[in-house]
């Protein structure tokens, strides 16, 4: 990713109080409807991202030395620098990079192939009832006008902060996080996380990556498709010049 002055979200589960203002603010800004849910024996709801839910809080309960730990982790599009969804997407302009570095989408241009769902290392994109992509777009329609993304705007504790990516990385490091999740991965994530512990505790892979088959496809199969075609055409031409066509008359001579 080459965007300069890249913007990002710094998400700090240590500061998150699980109030879910972000969930609601996102719905308010994006005019997304509420869906019918049930209580599944947890505070967490809805149970997963949906086409009507671009970000949500995951509640992770785990034992600790003294009693229990309860982590609140904001789940959303990571706005990867090297975005698997963009890589695999066959429709130009359906997924695009804003000048702030967000991975935004255009439902009109989305062809509904849903390959982005597969290309994503974080299982983020969802598709709506028309089969079109739905996910966090970093409020591209707010940040373009200098406003904060709705989630960051509403977050009372600064658990979701928006700003210059470099500055946010530095801020997290200053706050004592030696490693900022997503600082380097996938050419740098656009949603970086200040994790106190191993990422897997928070539900994230230690080394996130675009699926290998997608990488292979991108690096080998895609070029092969034109090299192969071009090669065959070229070979045919050469052959034609070198050996010429098979002529029926020659049959006689040969015989």
């Amino acid at each position: 990713m080459t965007t300069t002055n890249r913007k990002a979200l710094l998400i700090s589960p240590e500061l998150c109080i699980g109030c879910r203002g972000c969930q609601t603010a996102c719905k308010a800004w994006n005019q997304l409807p509420g869906t019918k849910t049930v209580n599944r024996g947890t505070v967490e709801n809805p149970p997963d991202l949906t086409p009507q839910l671009y970000n949500r809080i995951r509640y992770v309960e785990m034992p600790s030395e003294t009693s229990v730990r309860w982590l609140f982790v904001n789940q959303r599009c990571m706005h990867c620098g090297d975005a698997g969804c963009m890589k695999i997407c066959p429709a130009p302009g359906a997924l695009y990079r804003t000048k702030e570095g967000a991975v935004a989408f255009d439902k009109d241009k989305c062809i509904g192939c849903k390959l982005c769902v597969e290309g994503c290392p974080f299982d983020v994109p969802r598709y709506d009832e028309k089969g079109k992509i739905a996910k966090c777009h970093l409020c591209f329609d707010r940040i373009a006008y200098g406003l904060l993304p709705a989630c960051a705007k509403t977050c009372p504790t600064g658990a979701i902060r928006y700003g210059e990516r470099d500055a946010l990385v530095e801020m997290a490091k200053k706050a004592g996080y030696q490693k900022v999740y997503g600082e380097m991965d996938l050419e740098g994530l656009g949603a970086i996380y200040a994790f106190r512990d191993a990422p897997k505790i928070y539900g994230y892979a230690e080394k996130p990556g675009i699926p290998e088959s997608v990488v292979f496809w991108h690096k080998v199969l895609k070029p092969l498709s034109y090299i192969g075609l071009g090669g065959v055409v070229a070979a045919s031409l050469i052959h034609y010049v070198a050996f010429g066509p098979k002529k029926d008359e020659e049959v006689k001579k040969d015989e």
């Binding site: 849903k114 597969e118 088959s213 496809w217 199969l221 092969l224 192969g228």
Partner: peptide, 14 residues
Amino acid sequence: GILLSHLLHNISFD
């Protein structure tokens, strides 16, 4: 199976 299909689709295409 989608990713595998995607891979095979493209290998076949090539």
